[in-house]
């Protein structure tokens, strides 16, 4: 059994209305040091198998096919066998 994490973030240049709103909220709470904030998605998966390279390849496929939309999002992943 392997554990995997997928981080999905908006591509650079794509406006993030949600991130902007959270940023404004932080600033209104006095956290003036916050320069920028973007909201993404985090997923935890349990995967059958212990071949790390094979699992990474499959997870990359899943990410491109369904978990992320490559037009607006990037992803990165971690697989722990």
């Amino acid at each position: 059994m392997a554990e995997a994490r997928v981080y999905i973030t908006l591509k650079e240049g794509i406006l993030d209305p949600q991130g902007k709103t959270v940023l404004r909220a932080l600033k209104s709470l006095g956290y003036d040091e916050v320069e920028d904030l973007r909201v993404g998605k985090y997923m935890e998966l349990k995967l059958k198998g212990d071949d790390k390279a094979a699992l990474e390849s499959r997870l990359g496929e899943m990410s491109e096919k369904l978990l992320a939309n490559p037009i607006i999002e990037d992803y990165r992943m971690e697989v722990e066998v």
């Binding site: 209305p17 949600q18 939309n69 037009i71």
Partner: peptide, 17 residues
Amino acid sequence: LCEAGLLPGAMMRNTGL
């Protein structure tokens, strides 16, 4: 249709949320 790739582009949240 966008997700299926039958049309170009993608949808984001409305700017006003």
